[in-house]
Computed example of a mutant assay.
Amino acid sequence: MNISVVIPLLNEEESLQELYDWIARVMQSNQFLYEVIFIDDGSTDTSWNIIQQLSEKHTEVKGIKFQRNYGKSQALDAGFGVANGDVIITMDADLQDNPEEIPDLYHLIAIEGYDLISGWKKKRYDNVITKNIPSKLFNWAARRTSGLHLNDFNCGLKAYKKEVVKSIKVSGEMHRYIPVLAKNEGFTKIGEKVVQHQARKYGITKFGMDRFINGFLDLITISFLSKFGKRPMHFFGLWGTLMFIFGFTLAFYVGFVKLYRLYSGMKTILVTNNPWFYIALTSMVIGTILFLAGFLGELIIKNGPQEKHYKIKEYLNL
């Protein structure tokens, strides 16, 4: 199979039929073999009924229904798990991503050999204050932190080599950082393509301002995980050891000064009345806790089960 189109959605009943028809026209005009995988992330409207109707008419339409709303990252992870295409395209279900971009994205992956192509909505039709300006700030921070020079990390329209989506685990709200996850797994040929952004035709956006706060928190998380996710002892153990050595050295100094004053006949105070004693004790305790945290982290990584943090209620054509 040439292409798998993975589409996470939440309450997009107005756009699903139009989106599928548009994708089908593009695929058939380019003679692609394809499948369209809709992942219903806990919709409360008739979205799943429409997906069922599409799957009955078209065998290339497949569906996954979540038990409840888990988030876009979990929806993408489920879609990646069942995708069979050599090239995987992700797009949003709100018609703001243009299916006419699919042939060029496919060419960049299948012919030019890119591992991942991220769309860049250079001209956007979103609210400038609530979406465009925060998005620019977010992308600047992501570039600085990740070392990937992409202009639009959060664009839903992306293309992947099959090996990429089968190698990464998308959880939490890490869908914004899939290029970073891919880079961390050793896929370095990552590019960007300017794509056409459509004005929203139906409904309202499902994302509020909190997504930017969560995005920055996730950015810190993935920056840490990219460096220490598979070796937590290198972070916690290092800082734990340094804190313990600092505390032990300070405690030794406090004890030495106490003994020196005692044997010199000088006036002394109780060690417990010296504030440096408590600083030393606290440093050693924190150091020990950090070291143990790194040790436990190593055990969890090596022995912990890799669980999926979502529950699938129903499959269609899978």
Rank of each mutant, 00 (worst) to 15 (best):
residue 314 E to Q: 15
residue 118 S to Q: 13
residue 164 V to M: 07
residue 43 S to W: 11
residue 34 Y to W: 14
residue 151 N to P: 00
residue 197 H to F: 07
residue 210 D to S: 13
residue 120 W to L: 09
residue 221 T to A: 13
residue 20 Y to W: 13
residue 89 I to A: 05
residue 242 L to S: 06
residue 308 K to Y: 05
residue 17 Q to T: 15
residue 93 A to V: 02
residue 217 L to M: 11
residue 270 L to P: 01
residue 68 R to V: 02
residue 37 I to L: 13
residue 153 F to M: 07
residue 259 L to K: 06
residue 97 D to V: 01
residue 231 R to H: 12
residue 37 I to T: 08
residue 85 G to V: 05
residue 63 G to A: 02
residue 188 T to L: 14
residue 92 D to W: 00
residue 144 R to H: 09
residue 104 D to I: 11
residue 62 K to P: 11
residue 128 V to E: 13
residue 32 F to C: 10
residue 116 L to C: 12
residue 192 E to H: 08
residue 218 D to E: 15
residue 44 T to W: 00
residue 182 A to H: 07
residue 114 Y to T: 03
residue 189 K to E: 04
residue 180 V to E: 01
residue 9 L to H: 08
residue 128 V to M: 03
residue 232 P to R: 01
residue 217 L to S: 06
residue 304 G to F: 10
residue 216 F to P: 00
residue 255 G to C: 13
residue 144 R to A: 08
residue 266 M to I: 02
residue 226 S to L: 01
residue 117 I to T: 08
residue 273 N to Q: 14
residue 151 N to T: 08
residue 227 K to C: 02
residue 29 S to D: 14
residue 183 K to A: 08
residue 274 N to V: 09
residue 242 L to E: 05
residue 175 H to L: 00
residue 128 V to D: 03
residue 255 G to S: 13
residue 84 N to Q: 14
residue 127 N to I: 07
residue 5 V to E: 08
residue 93 A to S: 14
residue 119 G to K: 01
residue 71 G to Y: 04
residue 62 K to N: 07
residue 209 M to P: 02
residue 226 S to W: 07
residue 230 K to Y: 11
residue 117 I to C: 03
residue 230 K to T: 11
residue 302 K to V: 01
residue 118 S to E: 02
residue 297 G to N: 07
residue 41 D to T: 09
residue 150 L to M: 04
residue 104 D to E: 15
residue 132 N to A: 09
residue 286 I to S: 02
residue 115 D to Y: 11
residue 34 Y to P: 03
residue 47 S to F: 10
residue 250 L to W: 02
residue 215 G to S: 02
residue 132 N to C: 12
residue 33 L to N: 14
residue 132 N to V: 15
residue 148 L to W: 05
residue 67 Q to E: 14
residue 251 A to K: 10
residue 111 I to K: 15
residue 63 G to K: 03
residue 314 E to Y: 09
residue 83 A to C: 06
residue 204 I to M: 02
residue 54 L to P: 13
residue 252 F to P: 00
residue 165 V to Y: 05
residue 284 M to A: 03
residue 265 G to C: 11
residue 267 K to N: 08
residue 194 V to Q: 03
residue 204 I to S: 11
residue 304 G to M: 06
residue 281 L to T: 11
residue 72 K to A: 01
residue 283 S to N: 14
residue 256 F to T: 06
residue 202 Y to S: 02
residue 3 I to F: 07
residue 300 I to W: 04
residue 138 F to V: 05
residue 141 A to G: 11
residue 141 A to D: 04
residue 272 T to G: 01
residue 45 D to V: 12
residue 28 Q to P: 00
residue 241 T to V: 07
residue 267 K to R: 09
residue 126 D to M: 04
residue 60 E to F: 12
residue 142 A to T: 14
residue 32 F to V: 12
residue 129 I to E: 13
residue 197 H to W: 03
residue 100 E to M: 13
residue 34 Y to A: 12
residue 62 K to F: 04
residue 35 E to K: 09
residue 223 S to Y: 13
residue 262 L to V: 05
residue 117 I to A: 07
residue 153 F to T: 06
residue 75 A to G: 11
residue 316 L to A: 10
residue 20 Y to P: 03
residue 17 Q to H: 06
residue 307 E to W: 01
